[in-house]
């Protein structure tokens, strides 16, 4: 009797968990300074800013955005970040990378660098800067193991907040053509009744997806 009652309640709990795990808010803002229209034979490179001592833009996030931009029938050719950094070495290392477009103009005066950009067929550089921070952590979970088995009991919750900004540089005009920001936040829950059940807010992946889609639209020149 009890088992059949539990089975009846299971879909309710599953739905509740799905609703709880999906509570992520994502906001994408675009600021356009010039028109853009990338051609099919042109490429872009997406680079993470790593100048700050306090944090660095995660390589995984950069790769995620690159995958979103490159995917689909309207995908754009993206040069992998690691390949670009190695082949352009030493011009895009944390201490030597151009911070502004006038620095990029100085870099392009060097024949070896300009030639390499031409070899890659790069029309736009996208600089990603930002991080995901965790806050409002509360609750506690205790786990115990005994001769008859083990288990956990308790409840934990936290908030993840992702803030990323993409600055887009046009290599033809050596100017900034726009910026896109992605802010996402969401609360994750970790109830533990015998086993911990993680209900994670997909904050960073939502920021990545939103940023990637918006970048694609921006570079294609779609309004």
């Amino acid at each position: 009797m009890k088992i059949s009652k539990l089975l009846l309640q299971a879909p309710f709990f599953a739905c509740l968990f799905m609703v709880l795990s999906a509570c992520t808010t994502t906001e994408i803002d675009e600021f356009r300074q010039s028109t853009t229209q990338i051609q099919t034979d042109e490429s872009i490179v997406i680079l993470g800013r790593r100048q700050s001592n306090a944090y660095e833009t995660e390589g995984e996030f950069v790769e995620c955005v690159a995958n979103v931009v490159a995917s689909g029938s309207d995908g754009i050719n993206v040069i992998p970040e690691t390949q670009f950094l190695d082949e352009m070495f030493p011009f895009f290392e944390p201490r030597t990378a151009p911070m502004r477009t006038d620095h990029l103009a100085q870099l392009m005066e060097q024949e070896v660098a300009a030639q390499k950009f031409e070899d890659f067929g790069i029309s736009y550089i996208v600089w990603l800067d930002g991080l995901t921070q965790r806050s409002q952590e509360s609750g506690s979970i205790s786990c115990a193991v005994g001769p008859g088995g083990g288990g956990c009991f308790g409840f934990g919750t936290w908030v993840d907040d992702s803030n990323f900004e993409a600055e887009i540089w046009d290599l033809d005009n050596l100017s900034t053509v726009g910026a896109i920001s992605a802010d996402a936040n969401g609360q994750s829950y970790l109830p533990a009744i015998v086993i911990p059940i993680p209900l994670l807010a997909r904050v960073e992946s939502n920021a990545c997806s939103g940023m990637g889609q918006q970048l694609k639209t921006f570079l294609r020149g779609n309004v």
Binding site: P90, E93, P94, R95, T96
Partner: peptide
């Protein structure tokens, strides 16, 4: 490795 790359970048430039 990042530190050594940093040295290589500043040395070569």
């Amino acid at each position: 490795v990042e530190a050594f790359r940093d040295l290589a970048a500043t040395f070569s430039l």
